[in-house]
Every structure is written in structure tokens, then in C-alpha cells.
Design a protein around this nucleic acid. Structure first.
Length: 428
RNA sequence: GGUGAGAUACUCAAGUGGCCAACGAGGGCAGACUGUAAAUCUGCUGCGCAAGCUUCGAAGGUUCGAAUCCUUCUCUCACCA
């Protein structure tokens, strides 16, 4: 199956420039997607572009992942209603390194195959360009009228916009456009892909290529991931869902996918896994028969967690999920050895506590508040009156005192607020 | 530079001398129900067991009493130049 066809049946395709599909069918093409180094880790929002590059590579084309060292300094106004805060150079460099490392987990940059992925940083070519050069060589080819017509700009200039837009952000599209031009010249890169919010920026690039190099380049955008309930994809109460295991533990990562709604799961399984059409259709049919089994969610969790963190991490996430959400009791917990226990609770926030404190008996309120699990004594009392506090999976009342009898593996106490919020006390 | 509007808790937003720890909505958390879901219903959502304490851009002031009045400052936005 060819690249465009693949994206199409998976429901990922949003828009293409005319003739893009024909061109891709006939030519082994070099194409790129840009990644913003706004943090030192990518989050699952970046998973879609990564997967697109993977499909692109599988279809025999040459993928380039571009890290926006230069564009990150400017700030993309697309989809933003506020002026962005600029990152300082040190942070940015740290972020670039982090992002590069993560991309390498999904795309093979070192292989000797002829369509190995390539990684570039636009700072490398942007840093040497002077303002005068930029204004004469790039700015001259694009009219302000053209730039103003872009949605990302229009929205910010409209009278109902609250913030206005700085020249810095206005210039952004020229930066990204120049990237495309540069890759076109240096790498024969003919295609830029991205989320549908990138359409404006991408076409500035093809326009620049047309005017400056009399060349033809193509654009392809994918649908932005939405959630059926309207909330933002990739966000939880705790913040973004990151691809970095230190920021979002594999367990939480797995849980995020497992908790997808039925509606979302049907589209996610096409987008985020590489399973073939037939397998997916069977799964969807089975899921509809028995929705409570959540086959789709489990499969997505399996595929995506394995792809991101490896099989071992996935298996631990499953183990942890079973213990935390199965009907395990305090005795089950106590039967775990230290290593298994640690694997299961990897990523659960913890606090250390003196052994003597437990030996003297630790009352329930300070156990939850002093350790930093809950914010204040008042909150603990509130939670207690809601009957939402558990120690080692068993509900407790406000007169409960933690003693050495409650230690798991002679070392840990598992605190819990509600069903999903865990905290670990570690005796030292 | 000129003119005008504004700054209230996580967000939006009411409140214009005491009845204000501050209406309401959203969000969040929890409980019931459930599939670790959706929908729904209920409770909570500054600190404190409590008495009480600290909050309404900042600092001063008036007053028995201030989110509310006065002064200065800081910042934001809009229009004009």
C-alpha cells in the first residue's frame, strides 16, 4: 500500500497540495516534518508526526526529522492566541538534545539502508544568516499581503484578539518557509508534512521555493487528534503525557491509552498502531460485541507502550495495572518481593520516612499531609470524610495508625486517595 | 506621547464601606453507579481540629470596620498620534 493510501484509510490525512499524491507514487521522495524543542521531551502530540515519518520510510521514501533550534527561538503563532514566551538559549540546547534522543527511538538514523532517516537542526543553517541577507534574500520574495492572509496571522490581528502579535511571531512563517527552501536546495526535499495547523507555514515554504528557485514542492497535512469529549488530546490533570519515561512513567503512559473512550479508541488504533487493516477491523468488531472488555484500549496500550518504552516496560505496566485495579488485597501486596513491588510502583511518587516514626505509630493525617501527598491537613480530613483514603488498598478511618505491621516487603506503605491516586512511603 | 478601560481564587466572572473566605459558571478532586469508561446524581475545592488566621495587582492612607473610598506605584488592553 502506498504512503498516501495508508494515511487515508487510517483517517490521518487532512489535506494535500494538488498533485502531491501523483508525485509520491512516481518518485522516491525526500520529505520532512519539524519538531519544536519547547521542552526537553516530546509528548504524545508529537507521536502522530513521528508515526507519519515511519510510514513514509516504510513506503520507501526518505524521511527527515527537523529539530527547530532556530524556529524554536522565534515561536510559532499557529493555533496560539497569546504571544509566546521565548526560551533562552541554554534551555533550548538542552531541549534539542532531549528531543533528538527521543526521535532516535522511533526512527533509525544510523542504518545503512539507503532511505535511513535523517536528523537536522535548522539552527545550523540559520545561525549564519545576517539580518540584511535574510531581508534581501528571503523577505523580498514574499509579500506582507501574502503573510497577512494566513490564518495564524489573521486571527491575531482581528479586533477580537486580545493580545496582538509581535513582529517576531509574524516573521515565523518566513523562518519555517526558509527551512523548506534550504532542504529543497540541499537535500532535494520536495515535501513538507505536519499537522493541519501547519498548512499556512508549509505553503509559505512552497511559495518561497516557487519564487526563489522556480521549483515545485509539495505539502501534506494530517488531522489533528481530537477527543470525543472535547478535551485536549495528550493532556491529563497532571499535565502533558510525555514520551520520556522519567516524566511520564510507562505505567501512566499505558494507563493514558487504556483510558481512551470507546469512540476515540476506534480512531486511535488506526493512527497510533501499525496493525493492518484486517486486524484492526476484527478488533473493532470484537470490541463492539463486548465493550466492557476494552479490547481496543488494551491493544492500543500494548502497541504504543511497547513502541515507546519497550516490551519490558509494557509488561510492568500491565502488572502494575492488575495490582492497582484488580481486586488485590493488602495480603497480595505484602506477598510481593521488593523488586517486583518497585517495578510495579515505578513512577509512583514517593517520600522517605524514618523507621522510628513508623515504629512509634504514624497517624493517618500527618502520613498524608507531611509527606507531601496531599496539600494540607484539611484536605486529608476532607478526604477521610469522603471515605476515599486507603492504606495498602484498604479503606481506613481517621483514627487509623500506621505501624510496622503495615509494611510491605518490610519497607513500604502504599497510600491511596480515591481510586487512581497512589503514593508510596519508603522507610529508611 | 495622548485618551479611555481594566487588574478579584486554577480559569472566566459577580461584588462598589459592614450580612464577604468573597454569588455564579467552568475546571479539578472525591463518593454512588459503571468497564479503571461515558452520562447522571451528591459532596468538597485558602490555612487551621477549633477559636481564629492570611487573601481580591503592590505599597501606603482614611475609617470602629475596606475587595469596595483616597494617594502613589506596577502591569495589561483598546483607540489616537
Amino acid at each position: 500500500m502506498n504512503f498516501v493510501e495508508e494515511l487515508r484509510w487510517r483517517g490521518m490525512l487532512h489535506d494535500m497540495m494538488p498533485e502531491t499524491e501523483e508525485y509520491l507514487l512516481k518518485n522516491k521522495t525526500t520529505g520532512y516534518i519539524g519538531f519544536d524543542p519547547t521542552a526537553d521531551s516530546l509528548h504524545i502530540g508529537s507521536l502522530v508526526p513521528i508515526i507519519i515519518l515511519m510510514h513514509f520510510q516504510k513506503a520507501g521514501h526518505n524521511p527527515i526529522a527537523l529539530v527547530g533550534g532556530a524556529t524554536g527561538m522565534v515561536g510559532d503563532p499557529s493555533g496560539k492566541s497569546d504571544e509566546r514566551n521565548l526560551l533562552d538559549e541554554e534551555t533550548l540546547n538542552k531541549n534539542i538534545i532531549g528531543v533528538k534522543g527521543q526521535l532516535a527511538r522511533f526512527l533509525d538514523f544510523n542504518s545503512t539502508t539507503e532511505n535511513a532517516a535523517k536528523l537536522v537542526n535548522n539552527y545550523d543553517w540559520m545561525k549564519g544568516i545576517s539580518l540584511i541577507e535574510f531581508v534581501r534574500d528571503v523577505g523580498k520574495h514574499i509579500t506582507v499581503n501574502y503573510m497577512m492572509a494566513k490564518d495564524s496571522v489573521k486571527k491575531r490581528i482581528d479586533s477580537d484578539s486580545q493580545t496582538g502579535m509581535s513582529f517576531t511571531e509574524f516573521t515565523y512563517q518566513l523562518f519555517q518557509g526558509y527551512d523548506f527552501y534550504h532542504l529543497y536546495k540541499e537535500n532535494d526535499c520536495k515535501l513538507q508534512m505536519g499537522g493541519s495547523d501547519q498548512w499556512g507555514n508549509i505553503t509559505t515554504g512552497t511559495e518561497l521555493i516557487r519564487r526563489k528557485a522556480q521549483g515545485k514542492a509539495y505539502a501534506l497535512t494530517c488531522k489533528l487528534i481530537t477527543k470525543a469529549d472535547g478535551t485536549k488530546f495528550g493532556k491529563t490533570a497532571g499535565g502533558n503525557v510525555w514520551l520520556d519515561a522519567d516524566r511520564t512513567s510507562p505505567y501512566k503512559y499505558y494507563q493514558y491509552w487504556l483510558n481512551s473512550s470507546d469512540e476515540d479508541a476506534e480512531s486511535y488504533i488506526k493512527i497510533f498502531t501499525f496493525l493492518d487493516k484486517e486486524t484492526i477491523e476484527t478488533l473493532i468488531a470484537e470490541h463492539k460485541q463486548a465493550p466492557h472488555l476494552r479490547l481496543l484500549q488494551k491493544k492500543i496500550g500494548e502497541e504504543v507502550t511497547t513502541m515507546t518504552h519497550g516490551v519490558d516496560a509494557y509488561e510492568n505496566a500491565i502488572k502494575a495495572s492488575n495490582i492497582l485495579f484488580g481486586n488485590s488485597t493488602a495480603d497480595d501486596l505484602k506477598s510481593l518481593n521488593e523488586q517486583t513491588f518497585l517495578d510495579v510502583f515505578d513512577g509512583v511518587p514517593q517520600a522517605e520516612i524514618e523507621r522510628s516514626v513508623i515504629e512509634n505509630g504514624l497517624e493517618i493525617v500527618p502520613a498524608f499531609s507531611d509527606t507531601g501527598f496531599l496539600k494540607s491537613n484539611g484536605e486529608v480530613r476532607r478526604a477521610l470524610s469522603e471515605n476515599s483514603i486507603s492504606v495498602n488498598k484498604e479503606k481506613v478511618k481517621d483514627d487509623f495508625v500506621i505501624t510496622t505491621n503495615d509494611l510491605i516487603a518490610d519497607k513500604f506503605v502504599l497510600l491511596q486517595r480515591g481510586k487512581k491516586s497512589y503514593f508510596l512511603l519508603k522507610v529508611v
